[in-house]
């Protein structure tokens, strides 16, 4: 094999490796594409903060549902909370909002809700099994379920009113 051929082969292999590695450079390493999109949402029924009642997804079937995973130790969750509360009040007849808190203490959650208000059930995910089943990598994360209980969208990070409305419309349409 001539030197030029060896150099060409080396350059091709190097270019392929650089392409593979550079493809991930612009991506958020914590971002996870949800494989749940288009699939039935994992079912759950968890204890509600404050009342102790059990609230489950099944009781909201027939209505689009917004499932928001959050925690009181998460700073961006403070930022998105008013957005969620305002939209839940505004769309209470069309869309059901549910908060799922994990890796947290019920007293702290109750204090948070007392101080910042609430417009929908907040449930405690003891052991984090519900978060794991939804593939939650960090909080806040919000999942949008259509009337049939299928996941139609996932939003990572503190949600803004535009993204919330856009994804709710998607959940209502499908």
């Amino acid at each position: 094999m001539r030197r030029t051929e060896i150099l060409i082969a080396g350059a091709v292999i190097t270019a392929a490796l650089v392409w593979i590695l550079s493809a991930g450079l612009g991506k958020d390493p914590q971002h996870i594409d949800s494989p749940l999109i288009g699939k039935p949402a994992p079912d759950f029924a968890l204890k509600q903060v404050g009342t102790g009642d059990t609230v489950g997804l099944a009781q909201f079937r027939g209505k689009p549902v917004v499932v928001n995973f959050w925690a009181t130790w998460c700073r961006p969750c403070y930022e998105e909370h008013p957005v969620l509360v305002a939209n839940a009040e505004m769309m209470k007849n069309q869309v059901q909002f549910v908060g799922v808190v994990f890796q947290d203490k019920e007293e702290k959650i109750q204090q948070f809700l007392n101080e910042r208000g609430s417009a929908y059930p907040t449930l405690v995910d003891v052991g984090g099994k519900t978060a794991i089943a939804y593939g939650v990598g960090g909080v806040p994360e919000t999942f949008f379920l259509n009337r049939d209980g299928k996941v139609v969208a996932k939003f990572e990070g503190p949600i803004d009113p535009e993204a919330l409305q856009q994804n709710v419309r998607k959940a209502m349409a499908q």
């Binding site: 994992p42 079912d43 029924a45 009642d53 059990t54 099994k129 089943a133």
Partner: peptide, 13 residues
């Protein structure tokens, strides 16, 4: 039954 807490289970998937 209504009071029972239910977490997603591997058997479902």
């Amino acid at each position: 039954l209504a009071q029972e807490v239910k977490v997603p289970d591997a058997e479902q998937f």
